[in-house]
Simulated assay, not measured.
Amino acid sequence: MNKLTVLEIEFDFDGDINVIYPVILSDEREVILIDCGYPKFLPLIKAAAKINGIDISKLTKIIITHHDFDHMGSLAEFKRAYPHIKILSSIDDEKYISGKEKSLRLQQAESIYNKLPEKQKESAKKFQDFIETIENVQVDVCLRDKDYFSCCGGIEIIATPGHMPGHISIYIKESKTLISGDALVVENDKLMIANPQYTLDIINAKNSISKLLDYEIDRIVCYHGGIYTKDIRKSLENIISE
């Protein structure tokens, strides 16, 4: 039986309560986690999976939507605990996840550092140091736009560059569900494009949203914000036109 489980991971980050929503896809043969949280999040994800009747040790694959620290932060931890897990990412993000090239988020942070007011530089340097602690992991399978897997209700990879150039979203054909990574967020009950401050190419990001209009979507799972179901097509059109 095909199953899509949205995990709700609540945590404290620098004194603020945050929530992320990784997804687990499963059927008789596969158990696939999409994004795996911040560093040291394995216990949190394991506990949330257990509440939903899923044994995290049965994972077969982890798909990373992009290499930001909150999406791949615990990837090395998962790989050490469960070496059999296959790691999948876009072909454009593989070099950053594996450590062949410097994280684009770190490059962005370094590029703006000297332009910051002096009072902001201490926290900015801490952020850079934090990103540098993210462990790299070898990617087993590189994904391309329109790649399709018949497991778990039919998985289609959608290249959605913008937030990062190698960002991907995942469409589940059977349930008409889009797992959007950071291509979209839900804030104050509204579907929105991810924070422009952290979106490396806002024009490309909007072009990626336009692509989603080609899909029949009944539900969007945003990594930040959770499940969105209200008038999806109109919401996407509004984002594009803004």
Rank of each mutant, 00 (worst) to 15 (best):
K58A: 14
S98Y: 09
S89E: 03
A48Y: 04
S57I: 13
L59N: 00
I87K: 03
Q120E: 15
H71I: 00
P83N: 08
S98G: 11
P43H: 09
P39L: 02
N114W: 11
I112C: 12
L44K: 15
E77W: 04
E101P: 03
T65I: 08
A76Q: 10
S103L: 13
G53H: 06
K102F: 08
N52W: 05
L75P: 01
Y82K: 06
Y82W: 10
S57Q: 14
Q107L: 15
L59H: 00
S74I: 03
L106P: 00
I54C: 02
A76G: 09
K86S: 13
I112L: 14
G53I: 07
D68C: 04
G99W: 00
S89L: 05
K61F: 09
E110C: 04
D55F: 10
E118Q: 14
Q107G: 09
I91S: 00
K119F: 15
N114Y: 14
F41E: 03
D92C: 04
L116T: 07
I54M: 04
I56D: 00
K100N: 12
H84P: 01
L75H: 06
A49L: 04
N52T: 04
E118M: 12
P117T: 12
A47R: 15
K50M: 11
K102A: 07
H84G: 05
K121P: 07
S111C: 09
K102T: 14
E110W: 02
F41R: 05
K102C: 08
P39A: 07
E101M: 13
A48N: 07
I56R: 01
I56S: 00
E110Q: 11
K95C: 07
E94A: 14
L104C: 04
D55M: 09
L104E: 06
Q107H: 06
G99N: 03
K119H: 15
Q108K: 14
L88H: 07
H67N: 10
K79V: 12
M72L: 15
R80M: 14
L116A: 12
L59D: 00
P83Y: 08
D70T: 03
D70R: 05
L44D: 13
D93Y: 07
A49S: 14
S74K: 06
E118S: 15
L88K: 02
L106Y: 06
F41C: 04
S98H: 03
L106G: 01
L88P: 01
S90V: 00
A76T: 05
S89C: 12
A48M: 09
G73K: 01
A109I: 05
I64G: 01
P117I: 12
S98F: 06
A48H: 02
K121N: 10
L59P: 00
G53N: 11
E77C: 10
L88M: 15
I87E: 01
Y82Q: 04
M72N: 14
R80Y: 13
P117V: 13
H66A: 07
Q107V: 14
L88W: 13
S90M: 00
S103H: 08
Q108Y: 13
F41W: 11
D70K: 03
A49W: 01
K95V: 11
H67R: 10
I97F: 02
Y82E: 02
K121S: 07
K46G: 01
K95I: 11
Q120F: 14
I64P: 01
H84R: 12
S111Q: 08
G99Q: 02
K50Q: 14
S74V: 06
Q107Y: 03
S90R: 00
I85Q: 02
K61V: 09
R105H: 10
P39S: 08
S89Q: 01
D68M: 09
Y82L: 11
Y82C: 02
I45A: 07
